[in-house]
Amino acid sequence: MDNPFPQVRLCDERRPELPSNASLEEKIFEAIRDIRDPEHPYTLEQLSVVDPNSIVVVQGSKGSRLKGLVKIEFTPTVPHCSLASLIGLCIVARIRDENLLPPGYKLDIKVCDNTHESDEEITKQLRDKERVFAALENNKLRQVIDDCLSTCKPLHKDDDVAT
């Protein structure tokens, strides 16, 4: 276990339904916030791996084939996290599985600069479409990803956690 005692923050359980006019950033954050960390029974939001500011949508220029770019940055819980690539794959899988990327938009997932000892290498792997596609097609790896995508029990104020 890379991080046996992670910092866990309590998140607001009362989540109103997203309005129909919610931004793409809001829709994506709502979709990825509850992904379970591969190492802990906590969500990426609870471990501060992602937050609403982790997602930025940039509109493409007029006349460009690229209509927009969705940038997602995440912060592993420790600089030597061996599962950072898996976390990135889980984010990609959730966005693809829920068909959240509008046509003509590109997804760019990266590890926040200077938050992991291999942030550039992991980001390069996550930007390699063929490598990501192959990873998502691997049955054993996909089972691990699907476990992380399954519903995670939210923390309550009375739960015993280190905050």
Rank of each mutant, 00 (worst) to 15 (best):
L10N: 06
P16W: 13
I32M: 04
D128W: 11
L44D: 00
I32W: 00
Q7S: 15
E130T: 12
I32H: 01
S61Y: 08
F74Q: 00
F74G: 00
D12H: 09
D2V: 02
A22D: 13
K140F: 12
D108M: 05
V58W: 07
L10A: 08
L136H: 04
K129N: 11
R9V: 11
I109M: 02
A31Q: 10
H116R: 03
Q46L: 13
V8P: 02
V78F: 01
K129F: 03
R9Y: 09
Q7M: 15
T77K: 01
C81A: 10
V111F: 02
R36N: 07
P16L: 12
V58H: 10
F133R: 13
T43D: 06
V92A: 04
G104N: 05
D97H: 07
L100P: 02
P6M: 05
K71R: 12
I55N: 01
Q125A: 11
R14E: 13
E39Y: 06
L44N: 05
P102H: 02
S54G: 13
R9Q: 08
K110E: 05
K62E: 09
R94V: 12
D108K: 05
K140C: 14
P6I: 04
L10D: 06
P79N: 08
C112I: 10
I55M: 08
V58T: 11
V50K: 00
P103K: 10
R14K: 12
S48Q: 14
L107M: 12
V57Y: 02
D37H: 15
R94Q: 13
T115S: 01
C11P: 02
V49Y: 00
P38Y: 04
C81N: 01
I32R: 01
P4L: 12
K110T: 05
L10G: 04
K129M: 09
L10Y: 07
L89V: 13
E73K: 09
T43E: 02
P41S: 11
E130I: 12
C90V: 10
Q125K: 13
Q125T: 06
L18G: 09
P6D: 06
C90Y: 02
P103C: 06
F74Y: 10
I35C: 05
D37K: 03
F29L: 12
V111S: 01
H40F: 07
Q125H: 14
T115V: 00
L101I: 09
V57W: 06
V111D: 00
D2P: 03
V144D: 09
K71S: 07
K71T: 09
V56W: 04
E120A: 13
E121W: 14
P6W: 03
P38W: 04
D108C: 05
I28T: 05
L100G: 00
M1K: 07
E26R: 08
P52D: 12
S82R: 15
P6K: 03
K140E: 15
S23G: 07
R36S: 03
R9I: 13
H80F: 08
T43V: 13
F133P: 04
C90N: 10
P41V: 03
L24G: 05
D12P: 10
